[in-house]
Design a protein around this nucleic acid. Structure first.
Lengths: 269, 269
DNA sequence: CCATCTTTGTGCACGCGTTCACAAAGACAT
DNA sequence: ATGTCTTTGTGAACGCGTGCACAAAGATGG
């Protein structure tokens, strides 16, 4: 999960648990696929398999929305697509602005999944004057000076931040001041926002690090058996199982400066 | 949070809870920033604020790693950076392949956050022959025919899938067969993998949909006060709170084809 | 109309994660 | 050395999410 919510202490909104809300888009996607294949009805078991979840969980999730199924038969695909879409608010039009049209911003602008579900890219915004006017994914980039005007004129309430980390907070502040109340943040920074504003974070680097952790653990388990047989001298417990070279631990008092090639990468914060 | 783990029923690996692992990269980032400012020590309160979490949670998280703090003082920044890096496996070199060099793949290839923490882009792979040899972010794209060779030669264990949904499962299968055991999936599909393989999913569209839900709810709450005063007739219980035009339910038989340009996306499974 | 069979909807129990609150530990001053 | 003050580390309680297992509901066939 790329993950990470922010603020809002697990408020279960109007009775629908947060965890359920997070799965609704998953169900919706699976249902849409079925709909395209003109499948009329689907059982909780089948749909759960397609969405990659437990069938009991799926049924409980749907029970929060109401009793839309028919016992002995299953769920009506079209009807369910509609109900979930409505619940998620996808039956209305959501204008979205993307700020920061670098590699990632351009990718997002061209991402089909946005336009596909009621989201409309209202504007692409970048601070670089050289970008202004240049079309990206068919949409001309506008300068960030006009940010406030664009947001108020189009009634934008959702903003996507794809800028470098250094300017993310500042962009965020301007978005919020201009009226945006939901933000999807791709910059590796913790954004602070006033109450009432939702922030969701997507951090590519974090996901990779989590994978690395499990990967290391997997490798470590394998190496454990060998190490047991070897029973060598009691060197440092930590052993680098993979192919990589391990760095010497180094103790607190010592000057053990992070030997890894860790790049700055971090903003002033 | 962008979301979503897969398989592995919340195995707490070696005693470190999954939720804690997911936060370690967050702490690491905040700590790295402090380290660059040459801050020697930091209290749990300060660090928690920088990372955007509760201080008690942070202390408990660190307690799983060991007792690295000093009461009355706080934590040694450099030492903690090293400990977390080691725990996450970032002290070793992780070669990564990115499959699917479209807009998103190119963005990922150039993403600084990868190289910054021990991750090395070993290869960019694309199925389009026109891409082969073309440098992206300074790395020449290789054809997917050579996928297996690249993976085994470089000892790659982590793969990133940034292909269209339609081919994601197939790419995934090849990666796994070639020896990859951790996958970061950007394609909007549920991947099925054998036991022992970790999959993490990042789905841009899902994040937006979750935001839309909360956005709608916010708007609905405001409108609720008005509606209360109005006290209209008891029509169907379900009412669309938002301002948007609702799509007509559309019954089973109708051709209401999913309006999104969403690719089939669903695997045989 | 009745019996059977399928599938939903949910009560219940369990476990993980979060948070509070406080005792123990150590730094620091006197 | 002793007392005070700061901050960690954690025991315990609570709440949410998950999954089991089953009763109720409805379809279907005779």
């Amino acid at each position: 999960m790329a993950t990470g919510r922010t603020h809002r202490p697990a408020t279960r909104s109007r009775g629908i648990p947060e965890a359920t809300v997070a799965r609704l888009p998953l169900y919706l996607r699976a249902l849409t696929a079925l709909s395209e294949r003109s499948v009329p009805t689907v059982s909780s078991e089948e749909l759960a398999a397609a969405a990659g979840v437990n069938s009991a969980k799926l049924r409980k999730d749907f029970s929060y929305l109401g009793s839309y199924g028919t016992r002995g038969v299953g769920y009506d695909v079209e009807y369910l697509v509609y109900q979930i879409s409505r619940e998620l608010g996808l039956t209305q039009d959501w204008p979205v602005v993307i700020v920061g049209i670098g590699n990632l911003g351009a990718a997002l602008a061209g991402y089909g999944g946005f336009a596909s579900r009621g989201f409309r890219v209202a504007a692409l915004i970048d601070a670089d004057p050289a970008m202004t006017g240049r079309p990206v994914a068919g949409i001309p980039v506008q300068h960030s000076d006009d940010l406030e005007k664009i947001i108020s004129e189009d009634g934008v309430s959702i903003g996507v931040i794809a800028t470098p980390a250094g300017v993310a907070q500042q962009v965020c502040d301007r978005l919020v001041a201009a009226g945006v109340t939901s933000i999807l943040n791709f910059a590796p920074t913790v954004l602070s926002v006033p109450d009432g504003v939702d922030v969701r974070k997507v951090d590519l680097s974090i996901e990779l690090q989590i994978l690395a952790f499990h990967e290391q653990r997997k490798a470590g388990e394998e190496a454990e058996a060998e190490a047991e047989a070897a029973a060598g001298a009691g060197v440092v417990a930590a052993s680098a199982p993979g192919a990589g070279a391990a760095v010497t631990p180094g103790r607190k008092g010592t000057d053990r400066k992070g030997p890894d090639g860790d790049v700055p990468a971090v903003m002033p914060a």
